[in-house]
């Protein structure tokens, strides 16, 4: 039961993007297409899982005073693995994520989970925590990307590996006169602001309901 809780808390109750507000740079930088959000989410999930397991396994060995540099080295190693794998097998994703891929190293979610969770808990709990947080992050990114792409371009890109291998749903009506600004930089900040307000409103409503019951 408690293991299940470690897994699910990252998805809704402690969603890294909307509730704890960590890791904003990649969140807004890559969410112009739904497919990029999947790519970023999967990369972060892998790095988070690897570093959480590794740090949790070494938590008794790493001296407390130099733990942050040690964590950064572990995280950077996993990011390098992701970079090399994506570069070799799916260059389209590698190019689409661009500079935001190496920037996963400084994504606060990963260092934050290492510091707040993995160095205090067992390997199994840390792995579940990483999977939950990673899925929560991916869902949040997909939501932002879906809003920006549907209203900003009138399309949903589910799959985009090359000119021939792609699956793009074009929505009639919106795609003829989209709100172009949403795909630009300003749109990302606006969408994020409104979504955050929605989640605060939702949280308050749920708290009020809980109070009455």
């Amino acid at each position: 039961m408690s293991h299940m809780n470690e897994l699910t808390k990252g998805i809704f109750k402690e969603n890294p993007t909307f509730i704890i507000m960590l890791g904003m740079c990649p969140t807004l930088g890559v969410t112009t297409q739904v497919f990029n959000a999947f790519g970023m989410g999967a990369s972060v999930l892998f790095v988070l899982l690897g570093s959480n397991i590794f740090i949790s396994a070494l938590r008794k060995i790493i001296p407390d005073s130099i733990r942050i540099p040690a964590y950064i080295v572990v995280i950077a190693s996993f990011v390098t693995i992701v970079e090399m794998v994506l570069h070799a097998f799916v260059p389209a994703v590698f190019n689409a994520l661009g500079v935001y891929l190496p920037l996963i190293v400084v994504n606060c979610i990963i260092l934050g989970r290492a510091e707040a969770f993995a160095n205090k808990n067992t390997v199994l709990d840390s792995a579940l925590d990483a999977i939950g947080m990673g899925i929560g992050f991916t869902l949040a990114l997909s939501l932002i990307a879906a809003i920006r792409e549907i209203f900003g371009a009138g399309t949903i890109t589910l799959f985009n590996l090359s000119e021939t291998q792609r699956l793009v749903i074009t929505l009639p009506g919106i795609s003829e006169s989209p709100v172009r600004v949403l795909t630009l930089a300003a749109g990302a900040l606006l969408v994020m602001g409104y979504l955050k307000a929605f989640f605060i409103w939702n949280g308050e409503r749920r708290a009020a309901k809980g109070g009455q019951a």
Partner: peptide
Amino acid sequence: VFKGVPIAFISAGLMALAFM
């Protein structure tokens, strides 16, 4: 519900519009 972080993001979005 917009107090604090949400309104900060929306203001930043409007600034980004100006920077376009």
